[in-house]
Design a protein around this nucleic acid. Sequence first.
RNA 1: GCUGGGGUGGCGGAGCGGACAAUCGCACCAGACUGUAAAUCUGGCGCCUCACGGCUACCCAGGUUCGAAUCCUGGCCCCAGCA
Length: 304
Amino acid sequence: MNKLLVISGPTATGKTQLAFKLAKLLNGELISADSRQVYKGMDIGTGKEFSAEIPTWECDVVRPDEEWSAAHFVKLANKLIPEIQNRQKLPIVVGGTGLYIVNLLNPPETLNIPPNNEFRQKLERLTLSELQGALRHLNEKRFNQMNDSDQRNPRRLIRAIEVVKFRKLHKSRNGKETPYYPCYNVLHVGLTVPIKEIDRRIEERVRQRLQNRVEQEVRRLVKKYGWDSALSFTIGYQEWKPYFDGECSIDEAVKRWTTHEKQYARRQLVWMAKYSPDKLFDSGESNHYQDIEAHVCRWYYGKE
RNA sequence: GCUGGGGUGGCGGAGCGGACAAUCGCACCAGACUGUAAAUCUGGCGCCUCACGGCUACCCAGGUUCGAAUCCUGGCCCCAGCA
């Protein structure tokens, strides 16, 4: 039994509800592939949902001021998945962070090359052309491999430099940072909805979260962790800062939040178009659940 | 009613005689992406054309000028202060 079910898709398509249903049906446990729900206390704004019967892993694992990354996610997931399987249960990875899922299923060689924060801080002070120059000087080939947009992306340039530097330093003892290549029997189900419907659901959800007093949650978290934390790069949190600082009205802040959420959904769709799941379902269609259930069961109960 | 400021592309906002289809930001569209990914970055964004290029544009109507979003006159509208 090495089966692994993956459910991905843009925000507001009903992934979590689907995962709960399937978990109940197939005796499963969830692993959240969500880069924001890992943060403790960021509950209302990230829309955490739990079920009394079904365990959900990789939620609430670090504080908003702690470090987290795709590599952390993958490492923990590769520990959890066999554990769940050993309990004779089905692990279900659900989430909208496409990179996490891709990295889990198909880890890049560089995944376990750690960041060098001190070095990064130094590089962050450089201009774009200085960064480009630095990478070309270290490894012209690597620079040329990058596409036009990445060559102008400071963050990507910094990581590339970091990787090259690391390899130069550790070329003798290669192997330690090679990622673990799992071989699970994976079914990857994608969930989508026409974009107009996603927009509608996002608007509704923002209203709902306001009613659930996100504002209080944000205020509390800012007090505890400050803006120098995940709060400043999370939709639904970052937008509150100008309002708290008296630079805009609450309506403007909420509008920006909604817009950012919609833009995010579009980016997720672009990502999904590139890394398409095995099978895509439209959760706006009335009988989608039956279709998904049938499809998943065929895989689950089928021969290995 | 007087005085002063102003009307620019979906919005905010530069430009104040030529180099302006008009800096920039936002929104929007299309993408990229392999340890920050709800992040970060790229391209497009008046109309027609694959392109060279052409056409119509900076409230409206006139005028000055080789040339006007930019100057002048009149009109309409907005804002601030005074009445």
